[in-house]
Nucleic acid binder design. Structure first.
Lengths: 333, 333
DNA sequence: TTGAAAGCGCTAACAG
DNA sequence: CTGTTAGCGCTTTCAA
């Protein structure tokens, strides 16, 4: 690969001049500039970004760390971040952490050592003190990691309440909840929202809440156990759509008809939810806007050194689809 | 962030010595080493990888470029590559190209300028001459891009033949094909495999082949049109599972029962295929092995300068699930 | 066994 | 308007 020196030599100028035309900085004679540009294209020269990064400490690279690349929610989120960062001349990279603290820290350090300019992280494991070891801008997405780190999230508790209310309005009399991991902030909030709506119901049993761990397999097993132990359940609020798909599968394997025998409502609004049959009613997050906004916030933080922490919360909206009864109360389908 | 100089100063040695203990190279007195290590942990020092990269031209980073991060096939592939590269002390990053040549080249250059050690690429757009501008090791995955670039693929044509044969064995009399983009190598091969099996059938119509572009939406529209125009079709070989899900949705929206009225077989073996109802019979690729092998090949190429090009082809295997008739010929379900 | 110094490729003063 | 030069942080000869 040719270097700036080769270009300088060929154009008969100094490396400083080449650097000037490269960065469009300072004065450079039109004719000289043309000679340099000529040399650049002749050699097919491309500046070495590593050298640039070493000098100015920035790499024009932004990373997104997600806990589970196999959950379609995260690729959708990634798309948004990617689009926005690309528009702002950053190279975007995606990293998968398995929701594992070791991997998260490993990535954060590796990226930091590569002078990555900023990181957007979806994490439930990372602690404030670990975060103090990190010196580059970070924005939290989907889950809050610390009050000191800006975050983009949704109103999980309110969304969960709406979901349960909706099931009630559709006539469900016994509503269960498949929840996510207990240490994940949004999972806890969704559980709280569910509890808000059912805690005063006479029918509520503690065993109506089972954990699906935000995973397909776990959620399917959990749903089967739930419905086997409690055949009276006629509605399930599932904490994310991926588990919603699992719950659907489980009910079908048990020979139940959705939504005739049981209604299911999910959370997230991933496209998978509408691609399957029956499509899943869900509390939709504005995924694309959230990713965009997180990227915007991060870039802002990279540019200005102001460290004003912001916690933005988006609203979720109910999307009625086919996994819940169509008519309130009376169902003659 | 502390630098090697700070460590040297604190330990009362030269930077060269610090470098030696960092890299475990050359002789260094045990006592000195301990002093240095002490200083390192005291300062919480981490070497700047950019400076390292600048010196030795390597970054210990590997990238995977995929055309569509929303197709679950690619996250699954990414998992495999990630695991293997991580085991070999590389930082792994994932990039999404939208199957767009501009984006591909943009990423390749950006990554190359960052001294990325190697790239695994899933691409149909890139040409041999464009590839000549690239000087870092590249391995092609899933799709062949050039005879000069090592590749990991599957036996698409044979797999497609098996799929069609299977539908026939199950009693399908009119078998259509939803194909992928016409410029993608594996898509063409799957189409060829289909043609191999049906070209001598009296019932074959050219309109039995429709393009779904490897996309959900496109495939759903295509399937609806196909089945509306040709109600006689009782079997569809779909070129990938994502489109298989779409085809399933389309048939259901048309009021057809799968597999009673029509059988569907996909290709890829993504987990989504078994998570939905009915689960989709498919030609399963050994996705994890393929990703692993591609990473292995790439790392080999990075280490040895030998440029022996290899084209490895894996076999696909039939996975019978619920979207195809259970009993050959006679179906009394 | 250790240190001094050159240099990876680039940018930004500082002179001229 | 252009060139010289001093680093950015690290590794690696080469001497000592």
């Amino acid at each position: 690969m040719p270097t700036i020196k080769d270009v300088a030599k060929l154009a008969g100028v100094s490396v400083a001049t080449v650097s000037r035309v490269l960065n469009d900085s300072g004065y450079v004679n039109l004719e000289t500039r043309q000679r340099v540009e000529q040399a650049i294209s002749e050699l097919n020269y491309r500046p070495n970004n590593v050298a640039r990064s070493l000098f100015n400490g920035r790499s024009q690279m932004i990373a997104l760390l997600v806990p589970d690349i196999m959950n379609p929610y995260f690729p959708e989120l990634a798309r948004a971040v990617e689009d926005f960062t690309k528009q702002n001349d950053y190279t975007f990279v995606l990293c998968n952490t398995d929701d594992d603290l070791e991997k998260e820290m490993h990535y954060i350090y590796a990226l930091q050592q590569k002078s990555v300019d900023g990181i957007i992280i979806v994490s439930s494991k990372i602690s404030e003190e670990r975060l103090n070891e990190v010196s580059i801008p970070i924005v939290a997405l989907d889950r809050i990691v610390s009050t000191k780190i800006s975050s983009i999230t949704v109103n999980n508790r309110e969304g969960a309440r709406q979901a349960v209310k909706y099931l009630k309005a559709k006539g469900c009399k016994r509503i269960a909840h498949i929840c996510g991991p207990e240490n994940v902030s949004n999972s806890k909030e969704r559980l709280s929202g569910y509890m808000d709506e059912v805690k005063n119901e006479g029918w509520l049993l503690s065993s109506y809440v089972v954990s699906g761990d935000y995973q397909y397999e776990t959620a399917m097993d959990a749903t089967k156990r739930l419905l086997t132990n409690h055949p009276e359940i006629d509605g399930i609020f599932v904490a994310n759509d991926l588990m919603g798909v699992a719950a659907l599968k489980a009910t079908q394997e048990l020979g139940l008809i959705v939504p005739k025998d049981i209604s299911i409502i999910g959370f997230d609004g991933i496209s998978l939810g509408e691609q399957i049959t029956p499509s899943i009613t869900t509390m939709k997050q504005p995924i694309y806007e959230m990713g965009t906004r997180a990227a915007e916030l991060l870039i802002q933080q990279i540019n200005e050194k102001s460290i004003s922490v912001q916690h933005e919360q988006f609203d979720v909206t109910l999307i009625e689809r086919d996994s819940t009864k169509k008519k309130g109360g009376t169902s003659f389908e």
